[in-house]
Simulated assay, not measured.
Amino acid sequence: MLIPFLVNGCSFKDIDKRSFVTSIGIDKSELSGKKFKVILKISLSKGDPATIGADFTLLSFDANSISEALRRMKSMTDKELFYGHTKTILIGEKVAIGDIRPLLDYFVRRPEIHKTAYLSVATPSAYQVLQYKPKEERVAGSYLFSMFEESSSDSPFVKALTLFDAYRRETETGINIAMPVIEVQNNKILVDTIALFSKKRMETKLNPKESALFRLLTVGIKDGITNIKTKDGTYAINISKGNASFKIKEDKNHMLSAFFLIKLNAIVEEKMDNQNNLSDDQIKKIQDETEKKIKKEVNVLLDNIQKTKLDPIGLGLKFNSKNFYHRNWDNFYPNLKFKVNVACKINGAGIVE
């Protein structure tokens, strides 16, 4: 009879006594003696506590640690701050150029925050990005989440990064962090660039063209676009599907080369300076020019990334997976040679015939 009284119950709190945090932002504090400005984006219910709309409020606090700021913000609301619906974590650009390792370590250790939350560099600041309210947003914070969710966005520029992947790239040898940059520009949200990190901080950014090529080399692209010029005219080529694979080989002189194979399926989407129907020979010329252009651009991108001594693609990870003699990848990477092959197949003339 006494056994039921000895069983512990679960800790339960009604939904109307919780504040749902959908996004977290970390900016550099402008207050003297404070390190961070932590921002919480909280979704507001509409009458019915179970109904969540697009209305939100922002809470912020300046402190020397994230945990201190979150504890102090508990006193700013009459409800419990609930982080189970946090889908995005924004790191202000001024914070990103500093040491981000403590941030990643904190969020990975915090059990309430899902490891699948998306990370992004926010410019000019996380606060300005979080306070932006898109008209098409139905649930507060869902717009940012949809920007990175693969099933929602087919953008050829966005390379999503989850919390667990960022922590893996920060702690694993042979690979570096590549984080999307989200920017408020002309009262609109723009995500078309990627920031490259060392093990400690943001080092450089890729422009939109380089970001699209980087996505092609890593996770592949859908619905990409490039302009091709031949002696017959200029054409807009829609890359309906593109992906890449690579392997590392060592020659007799112990020199390493990275071989990339890029496969593209495309259509001629637009003829920009003539209206003549395309012949098979013309389509073949467009295919050849597309292969030459992508090969040249990829080689330039790989060379530029190599000069930064960063490895966001994971070439070192591939090398270490077959490195039975425990050789140091850093000694080989500066002299690594890149060999790129592109196979493009244009399936038709698209909408122009």
Rank of each mutant, 00 (worst) to 15 (best):
M1I: 11
P4D: 15
P4S: 15
S11D: 15
K13Y: 11
R18A: 07
I24P: 10
G25P: 13
D27A: 07
E30V: 12
E30D: 12
L31W: 14
F36T: 12
F36C: 12
G47K: 04
T51W: 06
A54M: 05
D55V: 04
L58H: 12
L59C: 03
S67L: 04
E68H: 11
E68W: 08
R72C: 09
L81C: 09
T86L: 07
G92H: 02
A96Y: 02
I97S: 03
R101Q: 10
L104P: 06
Y106S: 02
R110D: 14
P111S: 09
I113A: 11
K115Q: 15
K115Y: 12
A117G: 02
T123Q: 05
P124R: 02
A126F: 12
Q131L: 10
Q131E: 09
Y132K: 04
E137F: 02
V139K: 04
A140C: 01
F145M: 02
S146W: 05
P156H: 10
T162K: 01
F164E: 15
E183D: 14
V184M: 00
K188P: 01
E203K: 03
E210M: 00
L213F: 05
R215E: 13
R215P: 08
I225F: 13
I225D: 14
T226G: 08
K229H: 10
T230N: 11
K231W: 01
G233S: 14
I237Y: 09
K241W: 01
N243P: 10
F246S: 12
F259K: 08
F259T: 06
E269G: 14
M272G: 13
D273W: 07
Q275I: 06
N277I: 06
Q282S: 10
D288W: 00
D288F: 03
T290N: 09
K292V: 04
K293C: 02
K295D: 13
V298Q: 05
L301D: 15
Q306F: 06
I313V: 04
N320A: 03
K322F: 05
N328Y: 09
N335S: 09
L336K: 12
V342D: 13
A343F: 06
C344Y: 01
